[in-house]
Each structure stands twice: as structure tokens, then as C-alpha cells.
Simulated assay, not measured.
Amino acid sequence: MNVKMNGFISLVLGIGLLHTASAATHSLKYFYTAVSGDIDYPEFTAVGLVDNGQFMYFDSSTKTAVPKTEWMKREGADYWDSQTQGLIGEHQTFKVNIQTLKDRFNQSKSTGVHVVQRMYGCEWDDDSGATEGFDQYGYDGEDFIAFDLKTTKWIAPAPQAVITKLKWDSNTANNEHRKNYYTQECIDWLKKYMDYGKSTLMRTVRPSVSLFQKTSSSPVTCHATGFYPSDVMVSWQKDGQDHHEDVEYGETLPNDDGTFQKSIHLTMTPEDRKNNKYQCVVQVKGIKDDFIRVLPDQDATNVVPIIGGVVALLLVVVAVVVCVVIWKKRSKKGFVPTSTSDTDSDNSGRAAPQI
């Protein structure tokens, strides 16, 4: 299927995507996105995240890997040159992969937009020492193939991925090397980056919470912004009890200052609003206080601000988009089936093979 642009722009950090870190869990993730078709977007982009905060960026237009935080500038020219050369190679591999998949899905003559994505990385619990690794691919918004760290084999949820699974599973040495990267090398790089950016990555920032409503019949939006870290719970309560009916949950998105924002939308009748007490509760990991905004009665003056600025805010968010993520959100456990040399950077062990 062709990917529609209006359902296509989503930030990597909505990334509750596939893994949600706990307070003691830290993560290193990379997102590669290759696009074909008539679209005003680089053919290939790569984004690196530590604890869901962007620390590096590369695209096929600039052909240069660059740091996105002050603390990553500690790495010297050799590191960034190695990253750049590795990602230039990844771009070429992904160009081949996207054509291969178009052929497999009988889309070789399609003029629409098609997308191949890869998300890989590792997690480390600094309390228990437990580690986790992941490596998975998506095509046009659907899961395509994923690496199972326990079996050291690939899982193919799509029929078109079976040929890739058989090909990659036959290279047992590469799969073992890949497992070693995710369980050891990736964790070492994560710890190194955590040490570089500890003053930033270990901080907490309290959120600002507001309630918005366009008209009296529109859903009420609870918007939390400016918080850090990204691990947040935003919920509605009705008369002191958690309320999930007619609630739409938004994604956790990045602000351009390194903090995050998240919205949750509640639809209710005017009668329900008048006869019950609704409040929005925001809880940020690492901060003991709950942040609560009570929804006033509909008849109160200045009940909920009506702001066209919400639209402007979303445009600002899109302006700081670091990548397009079009995967359906699901847990790693829901991924159900129907090699390079070492360098001075963390490129080793995780290069993408041809599909």
C-alpha cells in the first residue's frame, strides 16, 4: 500500500513505539528511514537517541553525521567521519532494499511513496544490570522482519519476509555477531554516552499543564509540556477514579529545547461535565509530585482557553521532526511470525544487510 503523507509524519519520540523505558532503564536507539517516490524529504535519514533524546543525525542530502547535543561533541573528527562513511554505505543498502521490497509486494511500477524503516538498539537497567536488544524492520507502516535475541534467528510476520528470514538465518556467524553487539557493544556505547551526558540525561524538569478546548462541543485536551525525562503518564480522572472511556491518547513528542510534550483528549457530554468532577493528572518519572488540572464547570467564565495556538504548536513540532516513523505501534512481544568489521565508532555489528 502507498503511504499517505497525512498519516506519515510522526516523531521518533512518539516512540513509546516499541519499547518503554522504566525509571531505571536507559536506552540507545537508532532509526533508519529510506523513502522512494515523489516526496520532499531526503532519500535516507538516520537518527540516534539516548533515553529518547536525539544525539546524532544524518541524511542523504547533507551526507554528514552530526552531533545534536553539546555532550556528543566530545567525540572527535575520527568518530564522526566513521559514522558518516558507515551511513553513506547504509544509504546505498537501503536504496537496494526498498526496490527489492517494491518488487516483492508487486509495486515495482508504483509511483507512490514507499518507506523502509529499521529500528535497532539496546536497553540497560542500571539497578538490576539487565540488558535487552532489538533490531526490526518495517515496510509501508507494517512490521516486516525482526531479530529474536533469544533464538538468534529472525521472525518474519509477513509472507514476503520469509525469503529474507531464510537468507539471514543461514548466516549463523553474522547472527551471533549481531547478538554480541546488542548484548555487549551496544551496552558499552550506551554507558559511555550516558557518562558524557549525565548532567543532561539524569535531570528532571517539571511539566507545564494546560487544558484546551476549541468549542463547547469539542473534546477537551490536556496538554503537558516542558517535562523531562520522556517517561510520563497523562490520564483523566472522573470523580477521583481513573477514566478511560472516550479518551484518546496522544504521543510523547520532543520540544526543540530537549524537553517533551504529550496530550490526551477527553470527549464528554455537557451533562456529564456539569454533574461530575473531571481532572487531568500528569506524572513524570523521577518527580514525586503529581501535576493536576481540574476541569471547571462548562458555565464558568474562562473555563478552558480557546487557542488557535495549538495548531501553531503542532507546526513547530513538525518543524523539528527528525525522522518519519510510520510503524504501527505494538510491543516487541506482539511481533508474531506467519557483517561488518570493527571501527572506532559504534558502527560495528549492526550494519543492515541486503533484504
Results as ranks from 00 to 15, higher is better:
L101S: 05
K102N: 10
K102C: 10
D103P: 02
Q107K: 12
S108P: 03
S110I: 04
S110C: 09
S110L: 07
S110K: 02
T111N: 14
T111V: 07
T111E: 13
G112M: 04
G112N: 11
V113Y: 04
V113M: 11
V113D: 07
H114V: 07
H114T: 11
V115W: 03
V115G: 05
V116N: 09
V116M: 13
V116I: 15
Q117A: 07
R118T: 09
R118K: 15
R118W: 05
R118F: 04
Y120N: 08
Y120C: 12
Y120L: 12
C122P: 01
C122F: 02
E123M: 12
W124R: 04
W124K: 03
W124T: 03
W124E: 04
W124C: 07
A130C: 03
A130S: 13
T131N: 03
T131S: 08
T131K: 10
E132N: 15
G133D: 00
G133T: 00
G138S: 15
D140N: 15
G141V: 02
G141D: 01
A146I: 01
D148S: 14
D148R: 08
K150D: 14
T152V: 12
T152D: 07
T152N: 09
T152M: 14
K153R: 14
K153A: 07
W154R: 01
I155N: 03
I155G: 05
I155V: 15
P157K: 10
P157Q: 09
A158K: 11
Q160C: 00
V162F: 01
I163T: 10
I163S: 14
I163M: 10
K165D: 06
K165S: 07
K165E: 14
W168Q: 08
W168N: 01
W168A: 03
T172G: 04
T172H: 09
A173S: 14
A173R: 05
N174D: 14
N174Q: 14
N174H: 13
H177D: 11
R178S: 01
R178Q: 05
Y181C: 01
Y182I: 01
Y182C: 00
Y182M: 14
T183V: 10
E185L: 04
W189E: 12
W189Y: 15
L190E: 08
K192I: 06
K192S: 12
Y193D: 03
Y193P: 00
Y193W: 03
M194N: 11
M194L: 15
G197N: 09
K198T: 12
K198N: 14
K198C: 08
K198F: 09
S199A: 14
T200E: 06
L201Q: 04
L201A: 03
L201K: 02
L201R: 08
R206Y: 03
R206W: 01
R206Q: 14
S208F: 05
V209M: 02
V209Y: 00
S210G: 03
S210D: 08
L211D: 07
L211W: 05
L211Y: 07
Q213V: 11
Q213I: 10
Q213H: 11
T215D: 13
T215I: 07
T215C: 05
S216H: 12
S216F: 13
S217V: 10
S217E: 07
S217R: 03
S218D: 12
P219C: 04
T221R: 04
H223C: 05
H223E: 05
H223V: 09
A224H: 00
A224M: 00
T225A: 14
G226I: 09
F227G: 03
S230A: 13
D231S: 06
V232D: 06
V232M: 14
V232W: 06
M233F: 08
M233I: 11
